[in-house]
Design a protein around this nucleic acid. Structure first.
Length: 264
DNA sequence: CGATGTGCCTGGGGGC
DNA sequence: TGCCCCCAGGCACATC
């Protein structure tokens, strides 16, 4: 489940290896995974690779982009081999880019610059952006009584947090994931803001999280390292701070881990 | 309008 | 060993 740190890791690596190359051929192995006319992008040179929220786009010369959402199980692998879950193959001037996606939730779309902007206009600031301030967080928390974890996961409210990092951030902040968002005020908002930034940045620094499903690998097929620093997610043992047993519940249909003693 | 529920998908794992 | 069912969950979309 690539979240902001995993997508950012992939984006940085793609930017290093793809820029300057030309797309020679697009092979669509699964129709739904590639939307738009592949003919339009063949022969185009790659100018840059960028990210917004959990999306990556490959900026091509002229007015075209390849917008990518990896959703749950998408992988972009440079010089990868075609495998059972390969959905799209890009033959490039000096290499090959493979899009794998076991569960077929992910997609790649051919979009113009204007269509790209339309995808982004309704999105909130990413949590690593300058605009994601304490004040902004305060405002979105005050606007709803939904459980705080659901608000952190809501891509219309905060850009880039997924289930793993939401669990970790709330543990670090000492906040119960079920707490109504509008009951979190003052000092706790400042803590939450601080740990959102800190945990996400640590995740980026560690090259992302490869959880127990081992799905996430980077552009070179290598796992991340943040799983070694996880404090609650998939933790079936005890809290490292107080020794109480970590609890697992369902919240909004998602696995939620927390320490009942440290998180109030 | 906001909140909640459902479907998309496949493979791994538990129960029997 | 095999079969069935549940689970993982980001997001679009439908419904209340």
């Amino acid at each position: 489940m690539p979240e902001l740190p995993e997508v950012e890791t992939i984006k940085r690596q793609l930017d290093r290896v793809l820029v300057g190359q030309k797309i020679k051929l697009v092979e669509k192995l699964h129709k739904k995974s590639f939307q738009g006319e592949s003919l339009k992008v063949m022969g185009k040179k790659i100018v840059a690779v960028k990210r917004k929220a959990k999306m990556i786009w490959i900026d091509l010369e002229g007015d075209l982009n390849l917008l990518v959402h990896l959703k749950m199980t998408g992988q972009l692998i440079y010089q990868g081999e075609v495998g059972k879950h390969t959905r799209v193959v890009f033959e490039l001037s000096r290499g090959r880019l493979i899009f794998n996606d076991l569960r077929k939730f992910g997609w790649i779309k051919v979009v113009t610059n204007q269509q790209l902007q339309e995808h982004f206009t309704k999105l909130p600031p990413d949590v690593v952006d300058r605009e994601f301030t304490v004040k902004y967080l305060e405002k979105i928390l005050a606007s709803t009584g939904r459980a705080i974890k659901l608000v952190l996961l809501d891509q219309q409210k905060t850009g880039g947090i997924g289930n793993i990092y939401a669990n970790e951030v709330l543990f670090c902040s000492g906040i119960d994931p079920r707490r109504p968002a509008n009951k979190i005020i003052g000092r706790e908002v400042r803590f939450l803001h601080k740990y959102v930034r800190q945990v996400i940045n640590q995740g980026i620094k560690a090259g992302g999280t490869t959880a127990s499903d081992e799905n996430f690998v980077n552009v070179f097929g290598k796992p991340g390292r943040f799983q070694n620093q996880l404090l609650v997610y998939e933790n079936k043992t005890v809290c490292r701070r107080c020794g109480a047993k970590i609890i697992k519940i369902k919240l909004g249909g998602r696995g939620t881990y927390f320490c009942p003693k440290c998180q109030k």
